[in-house]
């Protein structure tokens, strides 16, 4: 009897623990968004985060975009040639980039670069009581630290994704048309004819949501890091892993409703 009731008690405790954590996780985002619209506004903090998340990721995202477009040009050309439809190369490259690879790969790269750094920074601030110091000064740490980061993510991700797409399409064109000899005219005409505003919006919606999710997860993990060195390192790892999983899971989910 006692073992059964003990088991139930432990199961109950685990469930309550899980629900509490989920609640904290959701409330964390809600308060970050709530405080983002509440004064005092700190444009200086927002601009600083846009610089860190957005501007400093420009080169990396552009580089990844270039290689992704190039490999799409290569694979796409060789596949389409078997069916004699090299003219569709532009359409294929552009649609794959704009709808899927642009938002997903940019989000993964920014997670690796800025998201991990963010989790580590907030974790270290938690560990060394800097977040407590803000609280005692009657400055809301979520408003001061988290809201600008989440907003900056929402602003930066679509811009970075657009950059990725443009450079990727150029890379696909350079390889497919310039190097391998696919026809130039159909490359661009195909894009102009077959890519709709809906395609572009789908990609940007995804980028927007990924920006929110990545900053939410990375700030949350850092903010609630355990107060020790291993706590910070664990927070960083968990932030990157959870962000990446959520990016891919949300991508499938959003594709299935937006298609």
């Amino acid at each position: 009897m006692t073992t059964i009731s003990g088991l139930i008690a432990r199961l109950g405790a685990a469930v309550i623990d899980g629900v509490t954590r989920l609640g904290t996780f959701v409330l964390f985002l809600l308060s970050a968004l709530f405080y983002a619209i509440l004064p005092p506004y700190k444009p200086r903090l927002l601009i600083r985060q846009i610089r860190i998340i957005g501007a400093e990721s420009f080169f990396l995202v552009g580089l990844i975009g270039l290689f992704t477009g190039m490999v799409l040009g290569l694979q796409g050309y060789n596949t389409l040639r078997r069916f004699g439809s090299e003219g569709a190369l532009g359409t294929v490259v552009a649609l794959v980039l704009v709808r899927e690879l642009g938002p997903v790969l940019s989000a993964l790269m920014v997670t690796a670069r800025a998201g991990s750094a963010m989790a580590a920074e907030l974790g270290a601030m938690q560990a060394t009581e800097q977040i407590d110091a803000l609280t005692v000064m009657a400055i809301n740490p979520v408003q001061y630290l988290v809201s600008p980061r989440v907003l900056a993510g929402v602003i930066s991700f679509p811009l970075l994704t657009s950059l990725f797409d443009v450079i990727g399409i150029w890379g696909g064109w350079a390889i497919g048309v310039k190097l391998l000899g696919a026809p130039n005219g159909p490359f661009f005409n195909g894009i102009a004819h077959n890519m709709s505003g809906h395609d572009i919006l789908t990609g940007l919606y995804k980028a927007l949501v990924f920006g929110l999710v990545v900053m939410w997860v990375c700030c949350y993990k850092g903010y609630y890091a355990a107060r020790m060195a291993t706590g910070v390192s664990r927070a960083t790892t968990e932030a990157v892993v959870l962000s990446s999983v959520l990016i891919l899971a949300w991508d499938y989910f959003m594709t299935s409703i937006l298609l």
Binding site: E121, T128, E129, A133, V136, M137
Partner: peptide, 13 residues
Amino acid sequence: FGMLFQAGALFDS
């Protein structure tokens, strides 16, 4: 309040 933490808690950035 003004508060001095035992370990300082200066903003290191």
